[in-house]
């Protein structure tokens, strides 16, 4: 939301004299140098590490059903208690991080790739390509994202992959709009004209010259879209669309936990807390990136 409006007043700093590598490094440094940025990066890294090392860190097999140990309150054996099947919740929460991150990552990569490409195309060439694709993304944007997820699930069946696809589609428009807006500004700049005079082909101009200068707003959008995808994945899983049993994403766990709110309130608390940690991390990263890349914009 904020990003859409922001893009309209976006003031871009062209860093065309710098190489892309040092740009990324500098951006990362500037993100980490802010206390909240560092905090956000640490939280996100922590969740990522837990997800990667889940098989080694988890105290139990997340799928093993300890019979007679159903809905046990947190104790020394089951630090976060057990679920309705007698499975260790801590282990399941750890493995749940994998689903959140992979769905978030996959959808952002998909949305980002398609969105950026489409944005480059329509920004550089304008004309009917621009009109058609942008109207298409406008249409996608006009749907409440949760309903897009529900519709895709109805069409393809509920599964983690399909949720990733739905979220990927839902995140295309923002990437496309941002890229397009940047391209519209950049393509009239002198360095583009210069490159063209030197005989550079159109694809080369777009990819080698214009694209690097559209990256900075996209960086922020990457973190924003990731947080959005993680949140929505949890929401859709909460509605019963998403990962298939016995696998469980945090949203699925919360959805099941609803049945045991009185008996086992911890069941409804811990997967949600895990979600909050990841979302906070991503949000802080997004905020810090925003400040780092554009210190004059008055957003947090």
């Amino acid at each position: 939301m904020a990003a859409t409006l922001g893009s309209k007043t976006q003031t871009l700093k062209a860093r065309r004299t710098q190489s892309t590598d040092s740009f990324w490094l500098a951006a990362a440094k500037r993100v980490v140098r802010q206390p909240l940025g560092l905090f956000g990066v640490s939280l996100t890294l922590m969740v990522t590490l837990v997800a990667l090392l889940a098989p080694y860190l988890a105290p139990h097999d997340p799928f093993f059903q300890y019979q007679g140990q159903e809905l046990v309150a947190p104790n020394s054996v089951y630090p976060l208690g057990t679920d309705e099947m007698g499975r260790d919740l801590l282990s399941r929460v750890m493995f749940g991080a994998r689903i959140s991150l992979s769905v978030g990552g996959a959808s952002v990569v998909m949305g980002g790739l398609v969105g950026v490409l489409s944005g480059l195309l329509s920004g550089y060439w304008e004309g009917w390509v621009d009109a058609v694709t942008m109207r298409l993304w406008d249409s996608v944007l006009a749907f409440p994202p949760v309903l897009v997820g529900i519709a895709v699930a109805a069409l393809l069946g509920p599964s983690t992959t399909n949720v990733a696809i739905a979220l990927g589609i839902a995140s295309i428009p923002q990437f496309a709009r941002l890229t397009r807006a940047s391209v519209l500004v950049e393509k009239h700049k002198e360095y583009v004209t210069a490159a063209r005079c030197l005989g550079a082909s159109n694809p080369r101009i777009v990819l080698r010259h214009i694209f690097p200068n559209t990256v900075s707003p996209l960086l922020v959008q990457l973190a924003v879209a990731m947080a959005f995808a993680v949140l929505l994945e949890a929401g859709l899983s909460f509605l019963g669309i998403g990962s298939q049993p016995p696998e469980a994403s945090w949203g699925t766990m919360l959805s099941t936990a609803r049945r045991f709110l009185v008996e086992a309130p911890w069941y409804g608390v811990f997967p949600g807390l895990a979600l909050v940690v990841l979302l906070l991390g991503l949000n802080f990263v997004a905020d810090a990136a925003r400040t780092a890349l554009d210190p004059h914009r008055r957003q947090y």
């Binding site: 949890a234 979600l275 905020d287």
Partner: peptide, 16 residues
């Protein structure tokens, strides 16, 4: 505070 508010999924908040 705002960042936290943005990081708390509303359906979970609802459950709590």
């Amino acid at each position: 505070l705002n960042a936290i508010a943005l990081g708390v999924p509303n359906f979970w908040l609802g459950l709590i």
